[in-house]
Design a binder for these strands. Sequence first.
DNA 1: ATATCACCTCACGTAACGTTAGGCGCAAGT
DNA 2: ACTTGCGCCTAACGTTACGTGAGGTGATAT
Lengths: 262, 262
Amino acid sequence: MEPESFKVSEFAKYTGVSIRTLHYYEEKDLMNPDRDKMTGHRIYHKADAIRLHQITIMKSLGFRLSEIKQYIQSDNLDSHFMDILKLQETKLTQDRERIDTALETIQRTVHLIDQEEEIESNFLFSLILAMQTEKQQKEISKPIMTNEVWSRLFDASLSEKMQWEQKLLQFFKEVKRLAGKPSDHPEVIRMLEQLQNDLLEVLNFQNYQELAQTFKIDHEQKENQEKFNQFLEEMDKLIYVPLTKKEEEWLDQVLDQFFNRK
Amino acid sequence: MEPESFKVSEFAKYTGVSIRTLHYYEEKDLMNPDRDKMTGHRIYHKADAIRLHQITIMKSLGFRLSEIKQYIQSDNLDSHFMDILKLQETKLTQDRERIDTALETIQRTVHLIDQEEEIESNFLFSLILAMQTEKQQKEISKPIMTNEVWSRLFDASLSEKMQWEQKLLQFFKEVKRLAGKPSDHPEVIRMLEQLQNDLLEVLNFQNYQELAQTFKIDHEQKENQEKFNQFLEEMDKLIYVPLTKKEEEWLDQVLDQFFNRK
DNA sequence: ATATCACCTCACGTAACGTTAGGCGCAAGT
DNA sequence: ACTTGCGCCTAACGTTACGTGAGGTGATAT
């Protein structure tokens, strides 16, 4: 047997909406229940339940109360309502995309921390940023790379990316460990060879010649030179390298010697 | 050439973060830039950029500033950070699920409005609620249906659901149009036959016998009788039928006559 | 001298409620 | 008769991450 009218607490229990929320909706002019003229207490009827029903549903679709107030007035649903729904759809889609990239980033980060128990936080954050700005990087990078290299870099699968990130991390760890040693130190050479292998593997090239060539192509053309500098500047903002100046200089030097020897 | 220090506006431009936000982060003790002791102006350095970097990244992962403040302090990332990330992951996953159901609901609704230009809003809202509470309905319905019927109803594809919803809508429209007519009126009979066909099609049964049987099985067992009543009560809260009492009574009557005749 | 800048510090507004805090009328227990 | 307690009421602050003025200061350009 359903009751004809409810007091707030009853109505709240019946509908599953908090008393405060009922008050608030009334305050915001979304509902207008009867009142007991003696006590001033609110009295809810079935019609109020239907109204509340509509409100909660539109809320669950992500609309704001102010929007709901506007569109709930009309009893018949016209094409206007369609437009609103479609707008809401694009908005929700955007929200979902943001969440998706955040989720992927977290998964990759967790993987990274899982493998290496000790990570300098700054570098980790830098990697995270890199993950999140992948799309922008993709755009920035396009004009200065050949299509081949570009697609090999950016169309990688999730696991490929994770592997690549881990290797990068290990590389920087090695640099920090070996910084200062002569460039012909066996461990240094091993590190550089490892780097070279990783690069070749990531870019899926057969040999170093090919690698060097693709970079040269763009590097030597004058018009691209400028683009390349812009690119470096942009990337510099995006990516933090976890090395001190000394370590960075040392790395530049040994890299130079290693690659020029070839 | 990168400058060594920035004033607020410079720093804001450099980092892409608004001045107000910089002020706010300082207010919330997330940053602590130097000050010009004469003028009191803020002076930002590279370290501040890195700090800000960390903040924006964690924000993009969906963390709140208060959380960021706690976890950004420690320089080394321990397993604690992992736990936080994983928590955040589940939270984001939940968010995404909510968005997904909202999106599917919107799509189904748009489809519905697309087909029928005129829909009574209350019924539409009711359908929307039904879409959103499908999972709960699934749970509620399980004990009172046979597995066959149950899975046929709830494991339907998106397009099947959309078709079903549209048919339901048309059915109620017909009821409203024909209400009051005698049960042997040809249009009424046509409507009921259509309903029967739709039911058989949706449930994928060969004939009416089978349909009647599955319902009887549960309907006649005493222990299930109680469950069934609970079920009806629950469903009554969830689903609004867009008929007046008269229409409803008329429908009950013609349904009775139609199905008892078989 | 004055207008313009760039900076500063309040401090209110936003969305959707949760959460006290203080007060009123009515019923039951002492 | 008195107190206690319940359910209701209103008012108003707290929350989050800033946006947006308002009003004041010192330095520079006209």
